[in-house]
Amino acid sequence: MLPLISAGASGLIFGIGLTVSGMVNPAKVKNFLDLAGDWDPSLAFVMLGAISVTLPGYRLLRKSQSPWFTSKFQWPTRQDIDSPLIVGAVFFGVGWALSGLCPGPAMAALPSAIPGVLGFVLTLGVGATIAHHQKRLKDLVEKNASP
């Protein structure tokens, strides 16, 4: 039970943070991205606030042996800058600017039941599933191609 409670609490605090910071409001994100317009720098303060906790916090956690409820930390290990990283980020940037939503705020804003938000989350799932299967297919082809 404790593992589930801790994961739920993490999600809940994340959702409260997104709401309090104003990031659930697409207009606020769009105005952050509009440097030449009615610029609202709030989003930069959200990132600053978050990084000021995670940067020192991750450093401390790196020194501990294992997480509370599982055997090992899943720190990402990849370091290569490959084309999917860039292509994916460009796709994301266009969709983010068009809607003012990224995955976290979109999920957090679901209970508002605003049609645009509901539609966004629906196609978000479709797009994520397409990319997932494309990746799987590519891995499969590469595996068969190598001797």
Partner: peptide
């Protein structure tokens, strides 16, 4: 936008 963000974030 949802399609782009979903595809882009998983691909990237």
């Amino acid at each position: 936008a949802g399609l782009f963000v979903g595809y882009g974030t998983v691909h990237g």
